[in-house]
Amino acid sequence: MALTFLGRRNEDPCSKDGCYIWELMASALNDMVSQGMIKEEQVDSFNIPQYTPSPSEVKLEVLKEGSFSINRLEVSAVNWNALDDWNALEFESERFESVGDGGYNVAQCMRAVAEPMLVSHFGEDIIEEVFSRYQQILADRMAKEKTKFFNVTILLTRKT
């Protein structure tokens, strides 16, 4: 069996590897609190049910459970901005303008994940504003640093 999921490369659960993208979402929400668009209590009580494990945590859980042997375990990095991957391959970025703004693309990916939770907690009225702000924050961060997701991939064999 092969599994790939979001993780982190280092052991600190609070590192940028695992929670930075959500910290930026929190920045957008906190901006809206400071402008009186949403209540601070709403933001304080909002939680995203996600955990990004390190490779050693994954290994420990598989060994504890005991049904599988680990054949391979590795971490790979994926750029938030798809154009970074193309540029790394020395393609002309003008040829790939249709890929669009990286901040927009990442915001839309995150919207697919987070929108139902945000609507359930805050209501539908704030969604466009949250993601507009989030897109701007993402674009700013992505312009200043190489941002990456980390995938943990594990290959397992069921013990007989």
Results as ranks from 00 to 15, higher is better:
M1N: 07
A2Q: 12
F5N: 04
L6N: 09
R8G: 02
R8M: 03
R9L: 05
D12T: 09
P13Y: 04
P13E: 11
P13F: 07
P13N: 10
C14W: 06
G18W: 00
C19I: 15
Y20K: 15
Y20T: 12
I21C: 07
W22I: 10
E23A: 14
E23F: 08
L24D: 05
L24Q: 07
M25E: 02
A26K: 03
A26E: 09
S27L: 10
A28H: 02
L29Y: 05
L29R: 03
D31H: 03
D31M: 08
D31Y: 01
M32H: 04
V33E: 03
S34F: 06
S34I: 09
Q35N: 15
G36L: 10
K39N: 09
D44L: 10
S45C: 10
S45N: 13
N47M: 13
I48S: 02
I48L: 07
Q50G: 13
Y51T: 13
Y51E: 11
P55R: 04
P55H: 01
S56C: 07
E57C: 06
E57T: 04
E57G: 02
L63D: 12
K64Q: 14
E65Q: 11
E65N: 04
S67F: 13
F68A: 06
I70M: 08
E74Q: 13
V75M: 10
V75W: 06
S76G: 12
S76Q: 14
A77K: 14
A77G: 14
V78N: 13
V78E: 15
N79V: 06
N79L: 05
A82C: 06
W86L: 15
N87L: 13
A88C: 11
L89Y: 07
E90R: 15
E94G: 07
S98V: 13
S98P: 00
S98I: 11
D101H: 05
G102A: 07
G103V: 03
Y104P: 00
V106P: 01
V106N: 03
V106K: 00
A107K: 02
Q108K: 11
Q108A: 05
Q108T: 06
C109E: 13
C109F: 13
C109L: 15
V113Y: 12
V113A: 12
A114K: 01
E115D: 04
M117Y: 06
L118Y: 01
S120M: 13
S120L: 14
H121L: 05
H121D: 05
F122E: 00
F122L: 05
E124F: 06
D125P: 00
D125S: 15
I126A: 02
I127L: 08
I127A: 01
E128D: 12
E128P: 00
E128V: 09
E129W: 00
V130Q: 01
V130Y: 02
F131C: 08
R133A: 03
R133P: 01
I137F: 07
L138T: 00
L138W: 03
A139L: 08
K144D: 12
T147K: 04
F149M: 11
F150A: 02
N151S: 10
T153V: 08
I154M: 04
L155Y: 10
L155G: 03
L155F: 10
L156G: 01
R158V: 11
R158P: 09
K159W: 06
T160Y: 14
